[in-house]
Design a protein around this nucleic acid. Structure first.
Lengths: 328, 328
DNA sequence: ATGAAAGCGCTAACAA
DNA sequence: TTGTTAGCGCTTTCAT
């Protein structure tokens, strides 16, 4: 910038004005400055600008895994809102590791992102308290924050799985299995609660062998499926706790003689062609809502932290409507 | 940092040494500084650090659409490599709009990212020349750069679709349709070229009505499919130019009386359960290779720009092995 | 082992 | 309309 000023024969501030489109520069001066800019190939250094202004015009997004088809649309939705506000998006994957989540979130804070959107891997977010106090707007998505009071945008996991399980019951099932993620993950326990409530609503017992909570790695889910359909009290229907579970369960069920009904939490691409009944949550809406909340805070609207819950949708496509006892 | 120094009763530089783990500080002094840091909740401001050091420890990724299941894994792979090098990832979607690509890429350069990975939307990247000269390492992925000499990591679109179409021919098809993306997109024309070459190899004619290049919006693809299977010279097989086309084509073919063979470029989740034969490219490998190349450059290894092409894999699963004339 | 001073490139505040 | 000065928070250089 100094060089540009020298070459155009003007002061530093005049260049700054031209670069930022501020008023108070004659057309002629502007032309000279512009010429100098072009010939020197100058481009403003935003790092310096950030240091001076105190705002980085960027927000951070800590999610679980960008490669998961659930988080792609969520991230994209956040990006669109950020873009509308002139901000860039830095994102990182925690790989469901609380330490990595913390490391990432703090690294983003050190970069002085204006705001932070976090999909929690851990269940204790007190480490963010000083940052939030220092002015980093923070919104949690998909799962609530642990041990601090903060904004959160969630899907109705409880209501969704309750409706999904009720749907299976309505189609005649009495023995229904539930396969979900680690119990330390909030959505997993909420969905399990929905399952149990739906069973209670129908006054149905739940055998311990019908519930599997834990790793959603393919082998683990496959084992759980096999146990449930082949055990002494074999289930006639399954509720899959998330998209990964649904996919693996479908593969495991593909060559089972008995047709097992299935409702999965989360929609999948091609689920329509495979006739999979799902409880769909709107990942993009989740991201959009969270980002909008964040920017409201950045715009100075400072209401109390609140929790927003988005509805889920039951989409019947066939797999959830198979009656018990159907053969392939 | 000033405050920390004051509170610990030491000089600014000493605090800096402690914060950065530099040697030359007594244990006792370090303890005092650390205490001040903790009680003040101090965290280094990386913006200032960046300004001083000239390196941001961040790289930019401009891709087409983070919500597209092809780019999620790619982005994640880039992130992992970046993380291994202590860098953060800023990413943005061009939405296949050349102007938006440029805007994003230049915004990232203004932030002084150390390197840039670009999945081109446009076909003229001369606008990046000054940045590259100024030291921003740049690698193009999925599609080559336009009008400049730069690193590129690509999948073998030509060879992949040639193999896919040859596979259909080997299963008895003579009238094969091709549906692909806009011709200005490099991969689209390469894949078309692969199709034409495979047809020529087998000395088969190609009717103009068998080729549709253009928007991959569902309606457009659906129309193309309907035209091809119902025209005067109806095709018995289709080659789908990318994942979106495959999905829409499958939906359009689902209720057609004749079974149409299909091979799609790009693998899909659940493609195994739907028995879809595909030409798979390894999105993660694409991202990893590009990122590794980028960091090699950042490490000072400065060989000439080169183009790397990754192999594709034909995965036969059923849809590509349907003989002509099969009825549902 | 420790610290003082200069300066990275920009913008805010003020002056001319 | 234009320019000057100070300083954002850190690291680098050079003294001590």
């Amino acid at each position: 910038m100094k060089d540009v000023a020298a070459r155009a024969g003007v002061g530093l501030k005049t260049v700054s004005r031209v670069v930022n489109g501020e008023p108070g520069v004659t057309v002629e001066t502007e032309r000279r400055v512009q010429e100098a800019i072009d010939s020197l190939g100058f481009r403003r250094n935003d790092s310096a600008r950030v240091l001076r202004k105190g705002r980085t015009a960027s927000i951070g997004l800590v999610l679980e895994d960008l490669a998961d088809p659930f988080y792609g649309p969520l991230s994209r939705a956040v990006e669109e809102v950020a873009r509308a506000h002139g901000a860039l998006l830095i994102n990182g994957s925690s790989a469901e590791d609380p330490e990595r989540e913390q490391e990432l979130a703090l690294a983003l804070c050190a970069r002085r992102v204006d705001g932070l959107i976090v999909i929690p891997a851990g269940d204790d977010h007190r480490y963010l308290e000083p940052e939030i106090k220092a002015g980093v707007a923070t919104v949690f998505v998909d799962r609530p924050a642990g041990r601090i009071d903060a904004d959160a945008v969630l899907s109705d996991s409880f209501g969704g799985s309750r409706a999904g399980v009720a749907h299976l019951i309505a189609h005649g099932h009495r023995r229904i299995g539930f396969i979900g993620d680690q119990p330390r993950i909030h959505t997993a326990t909420e969905r399990l609660r929905g399952y149990r409530t739906a069973m209670e609503d129908a006054e149905l017992p739940v055998a311990p062998s019908w519930v599997a909570l834990g790793s959603t790695a393919p082998e683990a889910v496959r084992d759980a499926v096999v146990d449930m359909v082949a055990g002494p009290e074999p289930v006639t229907a399954l509720f899959a706790g998330n998209n990964r579970v649904t996919v693996t369960a479908l593969r495991a069920l593909a060559d089972h003689q008995q047709r097992i009904a299935l409702v999965g939490f989360d929609d999948l691409e091609l689920a329509d062609l495979l006739h999979i009944t799902v409880i769909a949550q709107d990942a993009a809406a989740l991201g959009r809502t969270a980002a909008e909340r964040l920017f409201r805070r950045l715009d100075g609207i400072d209401d109390r932290p609140a929790q927003v819950t988005l509805k889920t949708t039951l989409i019947p496509r066939g797999s959830g409507e198979i009656p018990p006892g159907t053969i392939h």
